[in-house]
Design a binder for these strands. Structure first.
Lengths: 221, 221
DNA sequence: CCGGGCGTGTTGGGATACCAAAAGTTGAGG
DNA sequence: CCTCAACTTTTGGTATCCCAACACGCCCGG
């Protein structure tokens, strides 16, 4: 649902935040690298203020660490951080899908099924970009069905780190299949099954993070 | 300057944030009331910058809402918001105490017991301030024992709204007793009991929020 | 050869002044 | 009473300037 309408006047701080976030998530700024307000401001032709806002935001999203009166740095995740994150995410995601199972209506299921089918089709034609988008929509719709705004807030905070850590989950078909299983349990309002399925679903994503960790491309001991 | 003796070198933005947060939590600024940067800056004898920082922070803590290019306002919580919050909190708190139960050591239990005993003593002498502090410590130590940093991050974000919504839980002795029950289950590593106890524990706090809601002293339909 | 100080340059936190754009507000006219 | 156009308020942003805290490299002594 994003990007339906063109932003008439995007706030600079939002633009800077997006640029910096993408730089980090896409690996153009490596963990440990400095984020110097003046330099970034000069690079992007803005004043320091939007840059400060952006850095604050990224700190709250957990991908940047900032100590008072020194430069901020791109966060270096430890094995422990990833483990901690996974534990919390498991609880939150379970909550989302269980609530969604309890509260969904016909229309919601239709939307969810639509997202799943688009994901599957994209996966079968190996259009990884479209598959990723559809998968994200699947989660988005699930949050919607869970009918709990705070859950949405929480997920928003998690999303950046999620993108960073689990960047590209390559096994598209396996992922789509997991979503099929979740969808089926959701339709049947089978919360018990969900409580078993979600942790398994997440575990497969964990593998990607572990791989990234092995590469050393962004995670420190 | 209005410089009350700053601790060592407290950042202005931190000071302003604390003042504004207390104003909101303690009801000196009512839900819906405007937060005008330059007015607040003048009141506190600072420039607009620290005020902006503070408002952003309070937005991220969920007690202020800000739309672009207009004043921010103190958030008005709906019944739905409170319900949503309670649902998520239940999941997070359960996670904390279950992890704490699985991972605690002797020393941790001693600390936890210390906090409980201080809470009980304060409750018996009706020192509500000391009881509140000890109860907060009890939770803090539990997060510590859970050995998951992200859980700590999450709780930090929740804490302000928690203070706002459940301001003063008056039944001190009942609360201390609930902590005793939790502590016992924690010592025995009885996670099943905890999963039953925590929701009950939280439900009693809910009553306070409901009361506040009935008063109309900060919650709108 | 190594480690602790010390001085220097860098960097964020903050103040002030000013501007543009988009909100909110008001009032006149239908 | 409603609508639409002026008017005012308020934020987002730019541009500078200053200062204190931090980082870092250099030097010196053990």
């Amino acid at each position: 649902m994003a990007g339906a309408m063109a932003a008439s006047t995007e706030l600079e701080s939002v633009r800077v935040t997006r640029i910096l976030r993408d730089d980090i998530v896409l690996g153009r700024r490596l963990p440990g690298s400095r984020l110097v307000e003046r330099d970034i401001a000069a690079e992007l032709n803005v004043s320091r203020l939007p840059v400060r806002e952006a850095i604050r935001t990224l700190v709250s999203e957990g991908v940047v660490v900032a100590r008072p009166r020194t430069w901020a740095v791109v966060r270096e995740f430890t094995h422990r951080d990833i483990q901690d994150f996974a534990e919390v995410r498991e609880a939150i995601e379970t909550l989302i899908f269980v609530f969604a199972a309890e509260r969904h209506d016909e229309h919601g299921i239709a939307r969810l099924r639509g997202a799943y089918e688009r994901e599957l089709a994209a996966a079968q034609t190996e259009d990884s970009e479209a598959a990723r988008v559809a998968a994200a929509e699947f989660h988005e719709i699930a949050v919607d069905l869970a009918a709990n705004e705070m859950l949405g807030e929480l997920i928003a905070v998690f999303l950046t780190r999620l993108r960073w850590l689990f960047g590209q989950h390559d096994d598209l078909l396996a992922m789509a299949d997991e979503h099929r299983v979740i969808l089926e349990a959701l339709v049947e309002r089978d919360t018990e099954a969900l409580r078993k399925i979600i942790p398994e679903h997440l575990a497969s994503g964990q593998a990607a993070a572990a791989r990234r960790l092995a590469d050393g491309s962004g995670v420190m001991a």
